[in-house]
Design a protein around this nucleic acid. Structure first.
Lengths: 349, 349
DNA sequence: TTGAAAGCGCTAACAA
DNA sequence: TTGTTAGCGCTTTCAA
């Protein structure tokens, strides 16, 4: 059996050097495209590398060079469309810029036990970390301590601005204002709101945008005009049933995400209300399916793929600035603008 | 500036050894929980490790031990619910079993340029590879050659059975039969089908299940009774419009996925057809939103999270069997059964 | 039970 | 332009 296994020993830089009749250093120089190699030598070495099907060990390289070309990614809730779209943006941009990704998904959104995670990333010598899990409750309480201990550059997605870290976020507040102002522009004065869970920063931003848009239009906001869901369609159903009780003359509603808006459509339809005539509806997120709801759903589109792309771009910038011993200009914030998409659920009569 | 940077040098095994007054070897033994260490020595070393906040370098370990506790994951289409749910299953099971993940998303579903990818994984010394991208067209043509060259264990998800590789798949054929037989049991005899893109193995399986269920019930299948979509809601709209032309007395339709079924609901509603009375509908996938469509959508639920979990489990089994020089029983196939979920879109009158 | 020596496969720093 | 030397931080092998 033993001689059968054909354990093709991987060729190393040493063997290539021997075959090419040069030192390992020269091979290394060719591999890393260093300028200080004679053209003929380079060509010769490249040929040998090709012929021997030599592939350098990324592990040995990381160890020796202290640069891995790997980023750590922390995500949560991949079964939901938002996080997975963001991750998709991250993978494509990372691929484009020559970085690989070590992925960790938090077991729960509000997981606070991040020390082992960071340690794991450090042990693997990642060049940077992308924190793509949402800000919820006090799940940033560790951040201050962390920054003292960890030198690895970190970029955060979709969290409240603060001066000590770099953040890329979508402007949820603006999106909510756009949605609510649109409903008001339709002539609606009784605009309700179904929020996401208010321990989420994003949910609070959206609610605030709704409030401010109303106040700005001279409409007073009362507590019977809104209720809280948990992003799921199921919670949306419960929320709209409750809201229709507490806010009987509601003629429009801004819903915190498209999933909840979906069940609002179902429930109001079953109750025989006409949409948008009796109740105009705007959701949030812009999932592709929203266009095919009954009726098609107006929504605030947020480009979460781009969010992921930009996060990688920024992180690469930070990492390479650091390499040049140029400590850059400190943490930077990028804010993306969402877009209002108007469909039948909030069409003018 | 320089003395300011506080570049906290990472402590290494060497320093721990010095501090503890033993050899690096002994530290290594403690780290790896080897039995051949005196209890007092172990305790002493553990204390020192704790006090010095020593964390071993995973990179150095991988290089030296030729075992990384990392799996490579190949996925595609993360912006769709299926692939991201599967990935979520993979992350949670990998975490549980002590493996990390290097993630690559194919730029396109049918990407055939997998050599650089595999090489990259090899360079990083992954212990195994999970191929979670769907089988489309000839995008498995490379597989035969690959198996000759690569020693790394690979497990494939959701592809056609073949003897030379391990596969974990959901039984799409069965799901389609369940759906179609259910429609027939409702007394419908004119059951149409909107398939996914037929270069997808899964789409072909579902179509075959539909055909066989009809044949089995003594109903002949003609080409005007089905049409092809591309999984998107948009394509579903086009497909149902066409099908209603070619198959005028259709009284039920089995739709290849829930997204397409959604636009079927919208289109038939706009045309004033009653569901399920005029047209009974069953989708496929079981996305959470399906319950809140108008009307709620019957569908075939496939547990893609579990799919990911099982893939990791199997891969770990294979990897550890290989470590024991026990070559195991060769490739193994696991098939998961989907479940029919009956809702209003196909309720009995 | 412990330690010394020799790598794992590569790159940085210096010398030639 | 090229080679030599000395690591990177750990584990394996063998000897004590």
């Amino acid at each position: 059996m033993l001689f059968n296994m054909a354990e093709k020993k991987k060729t190393t830089i040493y063997e290539v050097a021997k075959e090419a009749g040069v030192s390992r250093q020269t091979i290394s120089r060719v591999l890393n495209n260093r300028p200080d190699v004679a053209p003929e030598t380079r060509k010769h070495v490249q040929d040998i590398i090709q012929r021997m099907e030599y592939h350098p060990s990324a592990v040995a390289r990381s160890l020796s060079a202290k640069k891995s070309y790997i980023f750590g990614v922390v995500t949560a809730g991949l079964i939901y469309t938002g996080p997975s779209r963001t991750l998709s943006g991250i993978t494509s941009k990372a691929e484009e810029l020559g970085y690989g990704l070590l992925l960790k998904e938090l077991a729960s959104f509000s997981s606070n036990n991040i020390h082992p995670l960071i340690q794991w990333f450090q042990a693997h010598q990642v060049d940077g970390i992308i924190w793509a899990a949402p800000e919820i409750g006090d799940n940033r309480s560790w951040l201050k301590d962390l920054l003292k201990e960890v030198q690895i550059p970190i970029i955060f997605l979709t969290m409240e601005k603060r001066d000590d870290v770099s953040i890329v976020a979508i402007d949820n507040y603006l999106g909510a204002r756009l949605a609510t102002e649109h409903l008001i522009s339709l002539g609606r004065k009784k605009v309700g709101h179904i929020s996401g869970p208010l321990n989420w920063w994003e949910a609070r931003q959206r609610k605030q945008g709704w409030e401010d848009a109303l106040s700005n239009a001279g409409i007073q906001v009362f507590d019977n005009m809104w209720t809280e869901g948990n992003w799921s369609s199921k919670s949306g159903k419960i929320a709209i049933e409750q809201l229709l009780q507490t806010f009987r003359d509601m003629d429009a509603v801004f819903v915190g995400n498209d999933q909840m808006a979906l069940s609002v459509l179902q429930t109001t339809f079953e109750q025989g209300r006409l949409i948008p005539d009796d109740l105009a509806i705007v959701g949030f997120d812009g999932i592709p399916e929203a266009e095919y709801f009954c009726p098609s759903l107006s929504t605030v589109y947020q480009n979460q793929i781009e969010l992921g792309c930009i996060a990688v771009q920024e992180l690469v910038r930070i990492v390479e600035e650091k390499l040049l011993d140029n400590d850059g200009l400190g943490p930077k914030h990028v804010t993306l603008k969402p877009e209002l998409v108007i469909r039948n659920s909030s069409k003018k009569p």
